[in-house]
Write a protein that binds this DNA or RNA. Structure first.
Lengths: 195, 195
DNA sequence: AATCAACTAACTAACGTTTGTTAGTCTCAT
DNA sequence: ATGAGACTAACAAACGTTAGTTAGTTGATT
């Protein structure tokens, strides 16, 4: 039980302050125990981090798999836009998203390899949800006949950009950016005959 | 002279390891002096940081102003694409760019306000170089008649996305992303009659 | 039912290191 | 001879970590 609390609080603190700025004292205080007691559950600070990372990857994958399967049979545009919204919202508002952002942007020196692996694992799940949507869109003549990897690539870059911008801009400007990027992206990928 | 060296080495270290992971001992060692000697030139660590930040902002602004004025009279597409390339290259390869990335993504707790100001100052310069290009493109009928703020917004988001992705992907994948994003962006903004 | 051993999970105290910072001193140009 | 800029020495605070102790629970043995 305590162990789960530690993981939860550590996730929170890592997400908001980063790994190196989160001390064991902080974590212990958040849980309500003393610093050395952490060693009853984890062998060291790194171990806490990796368990948190693992947990976050699991949650993210589960989240995206669920959302991917929930995509209803609306128009391609709606499906993509929903995905865009959901993904962005999750990444910018959830603790897991913030943690992910922190550790993928600037991995704690040393374990950047493990983190890259984790990142790519999550991205894979996402791609698998995305590919069929694009493929169907092209088949149905709703989208330009562009290579699917090109579409997913551009889609990610869009999202990554907004993901980053969420750092500097307040909600108003961010929403404007979100809208602008989406509109131009959509103009770029939709089949020109369809209008 | 020593002071300039300190600023240069601090810039380097802050760019590669971040503010909190860079100790005064590191900086002193890089310069070739002892830690307390730093206090002959700066009142404390924060002061070093802010002088570095100031210097970086100056350099970035100068760089973009120059590049903006150098844009030749090629086609709109080439002008924009050049900008895209130059900006990305600068942000991903120069020490100043890396520093900027570090401090804007995750500002050292406390002085995030100052950093935001710096970021917006640089962005302003960039926007001023960009607006006339888009305006001319629309006038000449090369681009869709979209609101210019929408174009700049989307353009930034694109670049920000790639800027971020430079963290995880090796050159090959990154170049693929770069290409994909640009192509779809261009399809989105170019005037459909022109082809 | 009572006893004892083993385990869990908390604690206090202290470790050695690193952090940013200050005080005081020496040296060398101006 | 004055001051700038280097130095050594030392500081308190915070870091991750270890050692040793104690209380509470569980299971098996008598």
């Amino acid at each position: 039980m305590t162990k789960q609390q530690v993981l939860e609080e550590a996730l929170n603190l890592f997400a908001h302050h980063g790994y190196e700025n989160t001390s064991l004292a902080h974590i212990a205080k958040a849980v309500g125990i003393k610093k050395p007691s952490l060693y009853n559950h984890f062998s060291n600070k790194e171990a806490i981090f990796f368990e948190v990372l693992d947990e976050v990857v699991k949650r993210q994958i589960q989240f995206f798999e669920q959302k991917g399967s929930e995509l209803n049979q609306d128009s391609i545009e709606d499906q993509l836009h929903d995905f865009y919204d959901i993904y962005l919202d999750y990444m910018t508002t959830s603790t897991e998203g913030m943690f992910f952002k922190r550790v993928t942007f600037f991995p704690p020196e040393n374990f950047s390899d493990e983190i890259k692996k984790a990142f790519l694992r999550v991205e894979d799940t996402l791609t698998n949800s995305l590919i069929p949507v694009f493929e169907k869109g092209i088949e149905e003549g709703k989208l330009r006949k562009l290579p699917v990897p090109m579409l997913t690539s551009a889609f990610y870059t869009l999202i990554d950009g907004l993901f980053l911008e969420e750092n500097f801009y307040d909600t108003d400007i961010l929403n404007e950016r979100k809208k602008a990027s989406w509109e131009i992206f959509w103009l770029g990928i939709r089949h020109p005959e369809e209008a």
